[in-house]
Design a protein around this nucleic acid. Structure first.
Lengths: 236, 236
DNA sequence: TAGATTGTTAATCGATTAACAATC
DNA sequence: TAGATTGTTAATCGATTAACAATC
Protein backbone atom coordinates (compact mmCIF):
# COMPACT_ATOMS: atom_id res chain seq x y z
CA UNK A 1 0.00 0.00 0.00
CA UNK A 2 2.62 2.44 1.08
CA UNK A 3 4.84 1.30 -1.74
CA UNK A 4 2.05 1.80 -4.22
CA UNK A 5 1.66 5.40 -3.17
CA UNK A 6 5.37 6.06 -3.42
CA UNK A 7 5.49 4.74 -6.94
CA UNK A 8 2.63 6.94 -7.95
CA UNK A 9 4.44 9.99 -6.67
CA UNK A 10 7.61 9.06 -8.47
CA UNK A 11 5.81 8.69 -11.77
CA UNK A 12 4.13 12.02 -11.26
CA UNK A 13 7.47 13.67 -10.66
CA UNK A 14 8.88 12.24 -13.85
CA UNK A 15 6.00 13.29 -16.02
CA UNK A 16 6.14 16.79 -14.58
CA UNK A 17 9.67 17.27 -16.05
CA UNK A 18 12.36 17.28 -13.38
CA UNK A 19 13.44 20.94 -13.81
CA UNK A 20 16.88 21.08 -12.30
CA UNK A 21 17.97 23.73 -9.78
CA UNK A 22 20.04 26.52 -11.25
CA UNK A 23 23.35 25.60 -9.64
CA UNK A 24 23.00 22.12 -11.06
CA UNK A 25 22.31 23.38 -14.57
CA UNK A 26 25.33 25.61 -14.16
CA UNK A 27 27.54 22.62 -13.42
CA UNK A 28 26.21 20.23 -16.05
CA UNK A 29 28.39 21.66 -18.84
CA UNK A 30 31.43 21.14 -16.64
CA UNK A 31 30.53 17.54 -15.98
CA UNK A 32 29.94 16.98 -19.67
CA UNK A 33 33.25 18.51 -20.71
CA UNK A 34 35.20 16.53 -18.14
CA UNK A 35 33.46 13.24 -18.87
CA UNK A 36 34.18 13.68 -22.57
CA UNK A 37 37.85 14.17 -21.80
CA UNK A 38 37.89 11.08 -19.64
CA UNK A 39 36.19 9.02 -22.30
CA UNK A 40 38.55 10.27 -24.98
CA UNK A 41 41.44 9.17 -22.82
CA UNK A 42 39.92 5.71 -22.58
CA UNK A 43 38.48 5.74 -19.07
CA UNK A 44 35.38 3.59 -18.74
CA UNK A 45 34.45 4.57 -15.22
CA UNK A 46 34.64 7.70 -13.14
CA UNK A 47 33.80 8.11 -9.47
CA UNK A 48 32.11 11.05 -7.83
CA UNK A 49 35.28 11.85 -5.94
CA UNK A 50 37.39 11.94 -9.11
CA UNK A 51 34.94 14.30 -10.76
CA UNK A 52 34.84 16.36 -7.59
CA UNK A 53 38.59 16.68 -7.50
CA UNK A 54 38.83 17.62 -11.17
CA UNK A 55 36.12 20.25 -11.00
CA UNK A 56 36.77 21.64 -7.56
CA UNK A 57 33.59 20.32 -5.92
CA UNK A 58 32.82 17.85 -3.16
CA UNK A 59 31.90 14.27 -4.00
CA UNK A 60 28.64 14.87 -2.18
CA UNK A 61 27.70 17.63 -4.57
CA UNK A 62 28.58 15.50 -7.56
CA UNK A 63 26.41 12.62 -6.38
CA UNK A 64 23.55 14.95 -5.55
CA UNK A 65 23.78 16.57 -8.96
CA UNK A 66 23.97 13.33 -10.90
CA UNK A 67 21.13 11.84 -8.91
CA UNK A 68 18.88 14.44 -10.53
CA UNK A 69 19.46 12.69 -13.84
CA UNK A 70 18.38 9.13 -14.40
CA UNK A 71 21.44 7.94 -12.67
CA UNK A 72 23.49 4.95 -13.63
CA UNK A 73 26.15 4.71 -10.94
CA UNK A 74 27.49 1.38 -9.74
CA UNK A 75 28.82 0.65 -6.27
CA UNK A 76 32.57 0.32 -6.05
CA UNK A 77 33.12 1.55 -9.60
CA UNK A 78 31.44 4.89 -10.05
CA UNK A 79 29.65 6.00 -13.19
CA UNK A 80 30.16 4.52 -16.66
CA UNK A 81 31.65 7.36 -18.72
CA UNK A 82 29.88 6.32 -21.90
CA UNK A 83 26.45 6.27 -20.33
CA UNK A 84 27.09 9.42 -18.35
CA UNK A 85 28.22 11.33 -21.41
CA UNK A 86 25.10 10.25 -23.29
CA UNK A 87 22.91 11.28 -20.41
CA UNK A 88 24.50 14.70 -19.93
CA UNK A 89 24.52 15.33 -23.69
CA UNK A 90 20.86 14.52 -23.94
CA UNK A 91 19.88 16.67 -20.99
CA UNK A 92 21.85 19.64 -22.29
CA UNK A 93 20.79 19.05 -25.87
CA UNK A 94 24.45 18.76 -26.80
CA UNK A 95 23.66 16.01 -29.26
CA UNK A 96 21.58 18.33 -31.43
CA UNK A 97 22.33 21.29 -33.61
CA UNK A 98 21.15 24.65 -32.31
CA UNK A 99 20.80 27.44 -34.81
CA UNK A 100 22.01 30.86 -33.71
CA UNK A 101 22.47 34.29 -35.23
CA UNK A 102 24.97 36.96 -34.30
CA UNK A 103 23.93 40.58 -34.20
CA UNK A 104 26.84 42.99 -34.36
CA UNK A 105 29.61 42.32 -36.88
CA UNK A 106 32.37 44.12 -35.01
CA UNK A 107 35.50 42.43 -33.78
CA UNK A 108 33.75 40.26 -31.25
CA UNK A 109 30.84 39.25 -33.46
CA UNK A 110 33.00 38.25 -36.40
CA UNK A 111 35.42 36.46 -34.08
CA UNK A 112 32.60 34.32 -32.71
CA UNK A 113 31.28 33.64 -36.19
CA UNK A 114 34.70 32.44 -37.31
CA UNK A 115 35.57 30.67 -34.08
CA UNK A 116 35.37 26.94 -34.62
CA UNK A 117 34.30 26.24 -31.04
CA UNK A 118 30.66 27.06 -31.51
CA UNK A 119 30.03 24.73 -34.44
CA UNK A 120 32.08 22.06 -32.71
CA UNK A 121 29.62 22.09 -29.83
CA UNK A 122 26.57 22.11 -32.06
CA UNK A 123 25.87 25.83 -32.26
CA UNK A 124 25.50 26.63 -35.93
CA UNK A 125 25.90 30.29 -36.83
CA UNK A 126 23.24 30.85 -39.48
CA UNK A 127 23.61 34.57 -39.95
CA UNK A 128 25.46 37.68 -38.89
CA UNK A 129 23.83 41.10 -38.91
CA UNK A 130 24.85 44.71 -38.59
CA UNK A 131 23.39 48.11 -39.36
CA UNK A 132 26.55 49.68 -40.74
CA UNK A 133 26.05 50.03 -44.51
CA UNK A 134 29.81 50.15 -44.99
CA UNK A 135 30.26 46.50 -44.02
CA UNK A 136 27.01 44.92 -45.20
CA UNK A 137 27.76 42.25 -47.74
CA UNK A 138 31.29 41.64 -46.45
CA UNK A 139 32.25 38.01 -46.06
CA UNK A 140 32.64 36.45 -42.63
CA UNK A 141 33.74 32.89 -43.28
CA UNK A 142 30.96 31.27 -45.27
CA UNK A 143 28.50 34.03 -44.36
CA UNK A 144 27.92 37.56 -45.53
CA UNK A 145 27.02 40.39 -43.21
CA UNK A 146 23.33 41.09 -43.59
CA UNK A 147 21.44 44.30 -42.87
CA UNK A 148 19.26 44.48 -39.77
CA UNK A 149 16.21 44.79 -41.99
CA UNK A 150 16.59 41.13 -42.83
CA UNK A 151 16.88 39.94 -39.25
CA UNK A 152 13.23 39.26 -38.63
CA UNK A 153 12.68 37.27 -41.80
CA UNK A 154 15.89 35.32 -41.41
CA UNK A 155 15.24 34.31 -37.80
CA UNK A 156 11.76 33.10 -38.71
CA UNK A 157 12.84 31.27 -41.87
CA UNK A 158 15.72 29.41 -40.27
CA UNK A 159 13.85 28.86 -37.01
CA UNK A 160 16.72 30.39 -35.05
CA UNK A 161 16.66 29.49 -31.37
CA UNK A 162 19.32 31.75 -29.92
CA UNK A 163 20.66 35.23 -30.62
CA UNK A 164 24.15 36.43 -29.72
CA UNK A 165 24.35 40.12 -28.97
CA UNK A 166 27.73 41.67 -29.84
CA UNK A 167 26.78 45.29 -30.43
CA UNK A 168 27.90 48.32 -28.41
CA UNK A 169 26.25 48.64 -24.99
CA UNK A 170 23.94 51.43 -26.08
CA UNK A 171 22.34 49.26 -28.74
CA UNK A 172 22.03 46.04 -26.75
CA UNK A 173 18.48 46.45 -25.49
CA UNK A 174 17.05 47.36 -28.87
CA UNK A 175 18.78 44.44 -30.52
CA UNK A 176 17.46 42.14 -27.82
CA UNK A 177 13.94 43.40 -28.41
CA UNK A 178 14.20 42.84 -32.14
CA UNK A 179 15.59 39.34 -31.71
CA UNK A 180 12.79 38.49 -29.33
CA UNK A 181 10.18 39.96 -31.65
CA UNK A 182 11.63 37.83 -34.42
CA UNK A 183 11.12 34.75 -32.28
CA UNK A 184 14.36 33.64 -30.67
CA UNK A 185 13.89 31.84 -27.39
CA UNK A 186 17.24 32.59 -25.82
CA UNK A 187 19.86 35.34 -25.81
CA UNK A 188 23.53 35.36 -25.04
CA UNK A 189 24.44 38.94 -24.26
CA UNK A 190 28.08 39.84 -24.80
CA UNK A 191 27.54 43.58 -24.56
CA UNK A 192 28.48 45.47 -21.42
CA UNK A 193 24.88 46.40 -20.74
CA UNK A 194 21.92 45.27 -18.73
CA UNK A 195 19.30 43.66 -20.97
CA UNK A 196 15.74 43.00 -19.83
CA UNK A 197 13.70 40.25 -21.39
CA UNK A 198 10.18 38.90 -20.91
CA UNK A 199 9.76 35.75 -18.85
CA UNK A 200 9.40 33.42 -21.78
CA UNK A 201 12.87 34.25 -23.12
CA UNK A 202 16.04 32.86 -21.57
CA UNK A 203 18.95 35.22 -21.06
CA UNK A 204 22.58 34.60 -20.20
CA UNK A 205 25.12 37.35 -19.77
CA UNK A 206 28.71 36.72 -20.82
CA UNK A 207 29.89 39.40 -18.36
CA UNK A 208 33.39 39.68 -19.79
CA UNK A 209 34.01 43.14 -18.38
CA UNK A 210 32.22 42.32 -15.15
CA UNK A 211 34.40 39.24 -14.78
CA UNK A 212 37.50 41.37 -15.15
CA UNK A 213 36.16 43.78 -12.56
CA UNK A 214 35.50 40.91 -10.18
CA UNK A 215 39.03 39.67 -10.77
CA UNK A 216 40.39 43.09 -10.01
CA UNK A 217 38.42 43.15 -6.76
CA UNK A 218 39.48 39.67 -5.72
CA UNK A 219 43.13 40.35 -6.51
CA UNK A 220 43.19 43.51 -4.47
CA UNK A 221 41.41 41.91 -1.53
CA UNK A 222 43.37 38.72 -1.27
CA UNK A 223 46.30 39.74 0.82
CA UNK A 224 47.37 36.69 2.69
CA UNK A 225 44.09 35.53 4.18
CA UNK A 226 42.45 32.79 2.19
CA UNK A 227 38.71 33.24 2.66
CA UNK A 228 37.93 30.67 0.03
CA UNK A 229 34.73 28.91 -0.88
CA UNK A 230 33.91 25.71 0.91
CA UNK A 231 34.58 23.54 -2.09
CA UNK A 232 38.32 23.81 -1.61
CA UNK A 233 38.14 21.69 1.54
CA UNK A 234 37.79 18.16 0.21
CA UNK A 235 40.77 18.13 -2.14
CA UNK A 236 43.44 16.06 -0.46
CA UNK B 1 31.11 51.34 28.18
CA UNK B 2 29.03 49.22 25.89
CA UNK B 3 29.41 51.80 23.18
CA UNK B 4 33.13 51.77 23.62
CA UNK B 5 33.25 48.05 23.03
CA UNK B 6 31.09 48.29 19.95
CA UNK B 7 33.33 50.91 18.42
CA UNK B 8 36.33 48.74 19.03
CA UNK B 9 34.71 45.88 17.19
CA UNK B 10 33.76 48.06 14.31
CA UNK B 11 37.28 49.32 13.90
CA UNK B 12 38.60 45.81 14.05
CA UNK B 13 36.21 44.76 11.31
CA UNK B 14 37.34 47.56 9.09
CA UNK B 15 41.01 46.92 9.50
CA UNK B 16 40.46 43.23 8.80
CA UNK B 17 39.19 44.16 5.29
CA UNK B 18 35.48 43.57 4.90
CA UNK B 19 35.78 40.75 2.31
CA UNK B 20 32.42 40.68 0.59
CA UNK B 21 30.42 37.49 -0.01
CA UNK B 22 30.69 36.13 -3.54
CA UNK B 23 27.14 36.89 -4.64
CA UNK B 24 27.68 40.48 -3.62
CA UNK B 25 30.93 40.79 -5.56
CA UNK B 26 29.11 39.27 -8.50
CA UNK B 27 26.49 42.01 -8.38
CA UNK B 28 28.77 44.99 -7.78
CA UNK B 29 29.64 45.41 -11.48
CA UNK B 30 25.94 45.52 -12.25
CA UNK B 31 25.31 48.21 -9.69
CA UNK B 32 28.24 50.20 -10.99
CA UNK B 33 27.12 49.99 -14.61
CA UNK B 34 23.58 51.01 -13.77
CA UNK B 35 24.57 53.84 -11.46
CA UNK B 36 26.85 55.22 -14.16
CA UNK B 37 23.98 55.21 -16.61
CA UNK B 38 21.77 56.98 -14.12
CA UNK B 39 24.38 59.59 -13.42
CA UNK B 40 25.02 60.16 -17.11
CA UNK B 41 21.33 60.77 -17.54
CA UNK B 42 21.45 63.37 -14.80
CA UNK B 43 19.85 61.50 -11.89
CA UNK B 44 21.21 62.61 -8.55
CA UNK B 45 19.49 60.01 -6.42
CA UNK B 46 18.50 56.40 -6.83
CA UNK B 47 16.49 54.26 -4.42
CA UNK B 48 17.05 50.62 -3.61
CA UNK B 49 13.76 49.73 -5.24
CA UNK B 50 14.66 51.48 -8.48
CA UNK B 51 17.96 49.64 -8.65
CA UNK B 52 16.17 46.43 -7.80
CA UNK B 53 13.68 46.89 -10.60
CA UNK B 54 16.37 47.71 -13.13
CA UNK B 55 18.60 44.78 -12.24
CA UNK B 56 15.95 42.18 -11.47
CA UNK B 57 16.61 41.97 -7.74
CA UNK B 58 14.63 42.76 -4.61
CA UNK B 59 15.07 46.06 -2.83
CA UNK B 60 16.05 44.09 0.24
CA UNK B 61 18.97 42.52 -1.57
CA UNK B 62 20.09 45.88 -2.87
CA UNK B 63 20.07 47.44 0.59
CA UNK B 64 21.87 44.46 2.08
CA UNK B 65 24.50 44.58 -0.64
CA UNK B 66 25.09 48.29 -0.39
CA UNK B 67 25.23 48.15 3.38
CA UNK B 68 28.42 46.13 2.98
CA UNK B 69 30.06 49.22 1.58
CA UNK B 70 30.45 52.36 3.61
CA UNK B 71 26.93 53.29 2.86
CA UNK B 72 25.64 56.71 2.16
CA UNK B 73 21.89 56.31 1.78
CA UNK B 74 19.48 58.96 2.91
CA UNK B 75 15.94 58.35 4.13
CA UNK B 76 13.22 59.32 1.69
CA UNK B 77 15.69 59.91 -1.14
CA UNK B 78 17.82 56.87 -1.63
CA UNK B 79 21.50 56.89 -2.52
CA UNK B 80 23.35 59.81 -4.09
CA UNK B 81 24.44 58.53 -7.50
CA UNK B 82 27.69 60.46 -7.47
CA UNK B 83 28.83 59.12 -4.13
CA UNK B 84 27.60 55.63 -4.93
CA UNK B 85 29.48 55.53 -8.21
CA UNK B 86 32.67 56.66 -6.49
CA UNK B 87 32.26 54.05 -3.82
CA UNK B 88 31.55 51.19 -6.22
CA UNK B 89 34.39 52.29 -8.50
CA UNK B 90 36.83 52.35 -5.66
CA UNK B 91 35.79 48.98 -4.30
CA UNK B 92 36.02 47.36 -7.74
CA UNK B 93 39.20 49.22 -8.63
CA UNK B 94 37.38 50.63 -11.63
CA UNK B 95 39.13 53.97 -11.17
CA UNK B 96 42.55 52.47 -11.87
CA UNK B 97 44.22 50.99 -14.87
CA UNK B 98 44.76 47.23 -14.80
CA UNK B 99 47.37 45.81 -17.10
CA UNK B 100 46.48 42.59 -18.90
CA UNK B 101 47.97 40.37 -21.56
CA UNK B 102 46.19 38.15 -24.03
CA UNK B 103 47.54 34.71 -24.81
CA UNK B 104 46.23 33.27 -28.06
CA UNK B 105 46.07 35.54 -31.09
CA UNK B 106 43.28 33.72 -32.88
CA UNK B 107 39.97 35.30 -33.74
CA UNK B 108 38.85 35.72 -30.15
CA UNK B 109 42.16 36.98 -28.81
CA UNK B 110 42.65 39.59 -31.50
CA UNK B 111 39.01 40.63 -31.21
CA UNK B 112 39.45 41.31 -27.51
CA UNK B 113 42.69 43.18 -28.12
CA UNK B 114 40.98 45.42 -30.66
CA UNK B 115 37.71 45.73 -28.77
CA UNK B 116 37.45 49.16 -27.26
CA UNK B 117 35.45 48.00 -24.28
CA UNK B 118 38.38 46.72 -22.26
CA UNK B 119 40.42 49.92 -22.37
CA UNK B 120 37.27 51.92 -21.75
CA UNK B 121 36.84 50.12 -18.44
CA UNK B 122 40.45 50.45 -17.45
CA UNK B 123 41.84 47.15 -18.68
CA UNK B 124 44.88 47.99 -20.73
CA UNK B 125 46.02 45.27 -23.11
CA UNK B 126 49.82 45.40 -22.87
CA UNK B 127 50.67 42.42 -25.02
CA UNK B 128 49.31 39.63 -27.16
CA UNK B 129 51.13 36.31 -27.51
CA UNK B 130 50.96 33.23 -29.66
CA UNK B 131 53.17 30.29 -30.51
CA UNK B 132 52.40 30.20 -34.23
CA UNK B 133 55.54 31.46 -36.04
CA UNK B 134 53.40 32.34 -39.04
CA UNK B 135 51.66 35.18 -37.24
CA UNK B 136 54.32 36.40 -34.84
CA UNK B 137 55.12 40.03 -35.57
CA UNK B 138 51.72 40.70 -37.14
CA UNK B 139 50.07 43.89 -36.04
CA UNK B 140 47.01 43.85 -33.78
CA UNK B 141 46.04 47.46 -33.37
CA UNK B 142 48.95 49.18 -31.70
CA UNK B 143 50.50 45.85 -30.67
CA UNK B 144 52.45 43.16 -32.42
CA UNK B 145 51.95 39.49 -31.79
CA UNK B 146 54.82 38.28 -29.64
CA UNK B 147 56.20 34.77 -29.31
CA UNK B 148 55.45 32.79 -26.15
CA UNK B 149 59.14 32.86 -25.28
CA UNK B 150 58.74 36.52 -24.39
CA UNK B 151 55.70 36.05 -22.16
CA UNK B 152 57.56 35.60 -18.91
CA UNK B 153 59.79 38.62 -19.33
CA UNK B 154 56.98 40.82 -20.57
CA UNK B 155 54.61 39.98 -17.73
CA UNK B 156 57.30 40.72 -15.19
CA UNK B 157 58.48 43.92 -16.84
CA UNK B 158 55.06 45.44 -17.24
CA UNK B 159 53.82 44.11 -13.91
CA UNK B 160 50.84 42.51 -15.60
CA UNK B 161 48.04 41.66 -13.20
CA UNK B 162 45.69 39.60 -15.33
CA UNK B 163 46.04 37.14 -18.20
CA UNK B 164 43.32 36.42 -20.75
CA UNK B 165 43.42 32.90 -22.13
CA UNK B 166 42.13 32.63 -25.69
CA UNK B 167 43.93 29.53 -26.92
CA UNK B 168 42.34 26.21 -27.96
CA UNK B 169 41.04 24.10 -25.09
CA UNK B 170 43.94 21.65 -25.24
CA UNK B 171 46.48 24.38 -24.55
CA UNK B 172 44.57 26.26 -21.85
CA UNK B 173 46.09 24.62 -18.80
CA UNK B 174 49.66 25.01 -19.98
CA UNK B 175 49.09 28.65 -20.83
CA UNK B 176 47.56 29.20 -17.41
CA UNK B 177 50.58 27.62 -15.75
CA UNK B 178 52.96 29.82 -17.70
CA UNK B 179 51.02 32.97 -16.93
CA UNK B 180 50.98 32.09 -13.26
CA UNK B 181 54.68 31.29 -13.28
CA UNK B 182 55.29 34.67 -14.86
CA UNK B 183 53.46 36.31 -11.99
CA UNK B 184 49.91 37.24 -12.98
CA UNK B 185 47.49 37.27 -10.08
CA UNK B 186 44.28 36.62 -11.98
CA UNK B 187 43.13 34.76 -15.08
CA UNK B 188 40.14 35.15 -17.32
CA UNK B 189 39.72 31.88 -19.13
CA UNK B 190 37.87 32.08 -22.44
CA UNK B 191 38.83 28.58 -23.57
CA UNK B 192 36.34 25.74 -23.38
CA UNK B 193 38.41 23.88 -20.83
CA UNK B 194 38.71 23.39 -17.12
CA UNK B 195 41.71 25.23 -15.73
CA UNK B 196 43.11 24.57 -12.26
CA UNK B 197 45.02 27.24 -10.42
CA UNK B 198 46.74 27.49 -7.03
CA UNK B 199 44.89 29.24 -4.24
CA UNK B 200 46.74 32.51 -4.53
CA UNK B 201 45.59 33.08 -8.11
CA UNK B 202 42.08 34.27 -8.95
CA UNK B 203 40.28 32.58 -11.81
CA UNK B 204 37.13 33.50 -13.71
CA UNK B 205 35.72 31.43 -16.52
CA UNK B 206 33.95 33.17 -19.38
CA UNK B 207 31.94 30.00 -20.09
CA UNK B 208 30.71 31.11 -23.50
CA UNK B 209 30.00 27.59 -24.71
CA UNK B 210 28.69 26.51 -21.32
CA UNK B 211 26.35 29.50 -21.33
CA UNK B 212 25.01 28.44 -24.70
CA UNK B 213 24.51 24.91 -23.42
CA UNK B 214 22.66 26.23 -20.40
CA UNK B 215 20.49 28.32 -22.71
CA UNK B 216 19.75 25.25 -24.79
CA UNK B 217 18.72 23.39 -21.65
CA UNK B 218 16.54 26.18 -20.33
CA UNK B 219 14.84 26.68 -23.67
CA UNK B 220 13.98 23.02 -24.02
CA UNK B 221 12.71 22.77 -20.48
CA UNK B 222 10.59 25.87 -20.35
CA UNK B 223 7.36 24.72 -21.86
CA UNK B 224 4.69 26.79 -20.27
CA UNK B 225 5.53 26.43 -16.59
CA UNK B 226 7.49 29.35 -15.24
CA UNK B 227 9.67 28.04 -12.45
CA UNK B 228 11.56 31.26 -12.17
CA UNK B 229 13.98 32.49 -9.58
CA UNK B 230 12.63 34.39 -6.63
CA UNK B 231 13.95 37.70 -7.79
CA UNK B 232 11.20 38.02 -10.37
CA UNK B 233 8.57 38.43 -7.66
CA UNK B 234 9.00 42.02 -6.58
CA UNK B 235 8.72 43.69 -9.99
CA UNK B 236 5.29 45.24 -10.11
C1' DT C 1 3.70 66.78 9.99
C1' DA C 2 3.13 62.49 7.19
C1' DG C 3 5.14 59.32 4.55
C1' DA C 4 8.85 57.21 2.05
C1' DT C 5 13.15 55.05 2.39
C1' DT C 6 17.09 53.52 4.76
C1' DG C 7 19.86 50.15 7.68
C1' DT C 8 19.41 46.12 10.18
C1' DT C 9 17.57 42.16 12.56
C1' DA C 10 15.08 37.97 12.25
C1' DA C 11 12.78 34.48 9.31
C1' DT C 12 12.80 31.88 5.33
C1' DC C 13 14.52 29.51 1.80
C1' DG C 14 17.60 26.69 -0.76
C1' DA C 15 22.11 24.78 -1.63
C1' DT C 16 25.97 22.27 0.11
C1' DT C 17 27.92 18.98 3.00
C1' DA C 18 28.07 15.04 6.18
C1' DA C 19 26.83 10.66 7.18
C1' DC C 20 25.41 6.13 6.45
C1' DA C 21 22.70 2.08 4.93
C1' DA C 22 22.52 -0.44 0.66
C1' DT C 23 25.17 -2.68 -2.71
C1' DC C 24 28.30 -4.61 -5.80
C1' DT D 1 34.51 -11.82 2.05
C1' DA D 2 36.00 -6.95 2.79
C1' DG D 3 35.90 -2.61 1.31
C1' DA D 4 34.81 1.08 -1.79
C1' DT D 5 31.26 3.72 -3.76
C1' DT D 6 26.61 4.84 -4.66
C1' DG D 7 21.98 7.09 -3.59
C1' DT D 8 19.65 9.45 -0.15
C1' DT D 9 18.38 11.47 4.20
C1' DA D 10 19.41 14.76 7.66
C1' DA D 11 22.34 18.62 9.29
C1' DT D 12 24.65 22.65 8.26
C1' DC D 13 25.56 26.63 6.16
C1' DG D 14 24.80 30.85 3.80
C1' DA D 15 22.04 33.83 0.91
C1' DT D 16 17.70 36.05 0.17
C1' DT D 17 13.65 38.06 1.75
C1' DA D 18 10.47 40.12 5.09
C1' DA D 19 9.66 43.29 8.43
C1' DC D 20 10.19 47.29 11.04
C1' DA D 21 12.25 50.94 13.95
C1' DA D 22 14.91 54.97 12.89
C1' DT D 23 15.14 58.94 10.15
C1' DC D 24 14.84 62.63 7.07
Amino acid sequence: MVQHKEMGEKLLMLSAEPKLPRPVVYRLPQYLARVRELRDSGAEWVSSSELARDLGLTSSTVRQDLSHLQVCGVSRRGYPTRKLEQLLSRVLGANRVHRVVIVGAGYLGTALALHGGLAEQGFQVCGIFDDDPAIIGDRVGPLRIQPMTELNKSVKEHRIEIGLITVPAAAAQEVADRLIAAGVRGLLNLAYAQVRVPERVALMDARLIANLQQLAYIIRNRNGDPVRSRREKEST
